[in-house]
Each structure stands twice: as C-alpha cells, then as structure tokens.
C-alpha cells in the first residue's frame, strides 16, 4: 500500500467557534501504480484529504501512512513530500520562478540534489509534459494549461511515487483540461506513478482504476468506476452529474430498455446497435 488512511478525521474550528469535521472516519487505501479518483462537490472534504497525503495537514484522529511513513512524524516530512507530489488548482499561484526551467528546479534545489542531476531531471520532466520548447519562457506568458503542465514538471523533477492533482483542471479551458488529463494517464501508464485525482467532474474519473465518492466528510461509495457511476441513487444524493454515456444509459433504463453498463462510447454505440 502506498497510501493508507485509517479512521482519519480532520477537524477545524468554524467561524462560530464550533468544531466541524471536514473528514470524518475516512478509510482510503491506494496501491502503488493505481489511478484513483476522489469525487465530491465543493465542501465534501476532498481537498482536505489531498492536503493530508502531502502532509500539509495532519489528521486530528487516525493516521495516514505514505509508503509506510506516518505523516504525523515531523522527521518524515521531507521524505513524504518527496514521495507524494502535489499539483494545485490555480495555475497562477504555484509557480515560483520567473523562468520555466528555474521553476522546475525549485523542488530538487530544496532537496539538495546536485546540479548536474537537476539538469537531467529538468530535461526528463519537460519531455514528459511536452514542454521542451518552453524551457526559457516566462510562466506568465503561458496559457493556463501550459502553466499546469509546468507545475506537473516541477513535481516530476522530485521523482515522486505519487502525484495528487487537487482540482488541477478546474480552472482550465477544454483544451488545457484534455492535455493535463492525457499527461496524467501517461504518467500512470508509462512512468508507473500513482495518481490521485481530486475533482468534481465525473467524466474525468472514467479512466481511473478506482473511484471514491466523498460527501460531507465521509466515503459514501468506492469501487470500479462503472459500478460506482451506475449506482444512481448515491450519485443523485451527492449532487454530482453523470458523464454523458452513463446519463444516456440511465435514461434508457428508465424507459425499460436493458443495456449493458459502460462508460466507453464505443461499447455504448454497440449496445445501441444491438437494440435496433
């Protein structure tokens, strides 16, 4: 297990001075090399969980182990952050340097990695996100999607085992979103990196191995995307919207048509052809 959350609670003090649980008794386990999506609407606790993985927050109760390291132990801090990288939501607010390559170097510099190796890592990271051409560019001249790709490269340069994407596509246009999602898949398939995708777009979860749905700080459903998405009652309660294919199948079923559950367009088309 690369991520193991046992009975995790995270409490914060609300404006009225009351304790509120952003996460309440959450168990999430993720294996090395998995692509896991954590879905939930705003305020469901999904971003709180993201920050626990990176030890930016520490659980109030329960424990989180990252590659066997307890996030509550201060001595593990740098190792955990090196293992579990994080890409945030706002593309403008996570780039530190005024030149792309220098921004990518920021993480490795912090880790005290020798210069020659940092250079190699920058080459590698830029090639994975297909941004080699932009090495010497200024970040503020890039598009939102390109900025996010640089942020991913910055994380990659720390050679992480896990990358957490905390709503990293929410502020992008369709093109930027598609690019970032494709890179996530490549990272998972080709580089063997464990991906934790935090999002409220269900259609982004289609390619993941497993899906967790968080609602009001609790895991209310987890499993294979197809199983989860076709549990209509649960989905309805969470206020998430089904991806196109699932919605069409649901609406067909409502009229008494029996069709195979799938999230794949091609399979859905075949299903419809067979019914004709």
């Amino acid at each position: 297990m690369i991520v193991e959350a046992n009975g995790v609670r995270f409490a914060y003090v609300s404006d009225e001075g009351k304790y509120t649980f952003a996460l309440n008794d959450v168990d999430i386990t993720i294996e090395q090399g998995e692509f896991v999506t954590i879905l939930g609407h705003n305020g469901s606790g999904k971003s709180t969980f993201a920050k626990l993985v990176n030890a930016l927050n520490v659980p109030t109760n329960g424990e989180i182990l990252i590659d066997g390291m307890d996030t509550r132990d201060e001595d593990n801090l740098l190792d955990i952050r090196k293992t579990a990288g994080m890409v945030f939501q706002n593309p403008d607010n996570q780039l530190v340097a005024t030149i792309v390559e220098e921004d990518i170097a920021f993480g490795p510099e912090n880790l005290g990695i020798p210069r020659e190796e940092i250079r190699e890592r920058i080459d590698y990271a830029l090639s994975v996100v297909h941004m080699e051409k932009y090495r010497k560019h200024a970040p503020h001249m890039l598009s939102g999607g390109q900025k996010q790709r640089i942020a991913i490269a910055g994380v990659l340069a720390m050679k992480p085992k896990i990358i957490v994407f905390d709503e990293s596509t929410a502020m992008l246009d369709p093109k930027g979103r598609k690019d970032v999602l494709n890179i996530m898949r490549d990272l998972n398939r080709n580089e063997g990196i464990t991906i934790i995708l935090i999002t409220h777009y269900m259609e982004e979860a289609v390619y993941s191995d497993r899906v967790y749905i968080l609602d009001d700080g609790k895991v209310i459903k987890q499993g294979d995307p197809v199983d989860v998405f076709f549990d209509y009652d649960t989905i309805e309660k969470t206020g998430l919207t089904l991806p196109f294919e699932a919605k069409l199948i649901r609406d067909m079923e409502k009229t008494g048509v029996a069709i195979r559950h799938t999230l794949d367009t091609e399979e859905l088309l075949e299903g419809i052809c067979q019914l004709k």
């Binding site: 069409l248 609406d251 067909m252 009229t255 008494g256 048509v257 419809i272 019914l275 004709k276």
Partner: peptide, 19 residues
C-alpha cells in the same frame, strides 16, 4: 440537445415512457 438525442434513441430502440 441532449433531450432530443435521448428521445430519438429511445424511440428508435423501442423504449417507452409509459411507466
């Protein structure tokens, strides 16, 4: 629009809104 597509498919494959 989605509703149009849905109605088209359902009428083509013979679903019914009766229930």
């Amino acid at each position: 629009r989605y509703e149009q597509l849905k109605d088209y498919i359902i009428s083509t494959v013979g679903g019914s809104y009766d229930d």
